[in-house]
């Protein structure tokens, strides 16, 4: 319930109506949306019980590693039940054709694989918020100073997931494990996304805000 309460308000993409439709416009809209999402996700992280007790460098290391996983998991959850469309925001939904035009077809396919996985699992909102916190705590940064503290955070979130699943699905003893087993695909997809946006950044044709750039550079 704490994580449900900490879940950020929805953000709108607000594509610039003055710009003609193009791949540049689509990517500009997504990068701007991502930058604003990152600000609220950092605020969200601080509300995860135990996160703020980590040292500031360790909080930074986890976020620098997991930020794209968090962004993608939010898109995936919004897209559940939307036939083959990615809901980046309520006012910004992309189908395969639009993704292709934006040069995002590989990413579209990868994210859709996650959407299908969670659709077949019938992911609950409670499980989603817990899994998202686990993705952050499980970021596997190489720069963690206090592993014991991070492991304590992982353990408490894992316990929360198990408890939650045992209440929601008492008949299914495998469910927590099945949810955890979706995380490698999330990490793989996030790595693809970071690589893709690093290439776009190199290209220099799409304006990007500072926080988004800063986090992309953390992976460079």
């Amino acid at each position: 319930s704490h994580l449900l309460g900490a879940e950020p308000e929805k953000i709108y993409a607000m594509p610039d109506p003055a710009l003609p439709d193009s791949d540049i416009k689509a990517l500009t809209t997504l990068c701007d949306l991502a930058d604003r999402e990152l600000v609220v996700n950092i605020g969200w992280a601080k509300h995860i019980p135990g996160f703020s007790s980590l040292s500031l460098p360790d909080q930074m290391s986890l976020l620098q590693s997991a930020w794209m996983e968090i962004l993608i998991l939010r898109v995936v959850f919004r897209s559940l039940g939307c036939e083959d469309q990615l809901v980046f925001a309520e006012d910004y939904v992309m189908n395969e054709e639009q993704a292709k035009l934006a040069g995002l077809q590989d990413l579209y396919t990868a994210i859709l694989q996650l959407v299908r996985k969670y659709t077949s699992i019938k992911l609950h909102r409670e499980e989603f918020v817990t899994l998202k916190a686990i993705a952050l705590a499980n970021a596997d940064s190489m720069h963690i100073e206090d592993w014991v503290a991070v492991q304590r955070l992982q353990d408490s979130l894992h316990a929360a997931l198990q408890e939650l699943v045992s209440v929601l699905h008492p008949e299914d003893g495998q469910r927590a494990g099945r949810l955890i087993m979706t995380l490698p695909l999330l990490r793989q997809t996030a790595a693809k996304a970071v690589q893709h946006f690093c290439n776009i950044k190199q290209d220099g044709r799409v304006p990007m805000h500072k926080l988004f750039l800063e986090l992309l550079e953390a992976h460079a």
Partner: peptide, 15 residues
């Protein structure tokens, strides 16, 4: 750490 000043600042701000 110098390179990550916005993240640093956002984490330090109380929300």
């Amino acid at each position: 750490k110098e390179k990550h000043k916005i993240l640093h600042r956002l984490l330090q701000n109380s929300t």
